[in-house]
């Protein structure tokens, strides 16, 4: 199986991630969608690295995974605080700045 197979899987993951991020009304799902998008990108990086013979892409993917972990930790902390304040984890509910 060549490069195209990896790219197709990656594209499907990206599409799923976007749909999950845009359509869901739960912050946890949105975060999960973002993880999907990031991992689709990681898959791309690793696939290109494998087929081009460079290790750069794989190193970059490791960075990206670490970044995603950090981002998930911060985001979940924010979500926890938002829930404490608004008793909800719907992204539309905190609208104090709208007025």
């Amino acid at each position: 199986m060549g490069l195209a197979g990896y790219l197709i899987v990656s594209a499907v993951m990206l599409a799923c991630g976007i749909v999950c991020t845009v359509a869901r009304k739960n912050v946890i799902y949105i975060l999960m969608g973002i993880e999907l998008i990031l991992n689709a990108a990681n898959l791309n990086l690793v696939a290109f690295s494998r087929f081009n013979g460079h290790l750069d892409g794989q190193v970059f993917a490791i960075f990206s995974i670490i970044l995603a972990a950090a981002e998930a930790a911060v985001a979940l902390a924010i979500v926890l605080n938002v829930f404490g304040l608004f008793d909800s984890i719907r992204p539309d509910d905190p609208d104090l700045l709208k007025e």
Binding site: I18, T21, V22, A23, R24, I30, P91, D92, D95, L97
Partner: peptide, 12 residues
């Protein structure tokens, strides 16, 4: 609109 998901949708 203040809706984050809408913004994401626009960006996409």
């Amino acid at each position: 609109t203040g809706r984050i998901q809408q913004y994401v949708a626009f960006s996409v």
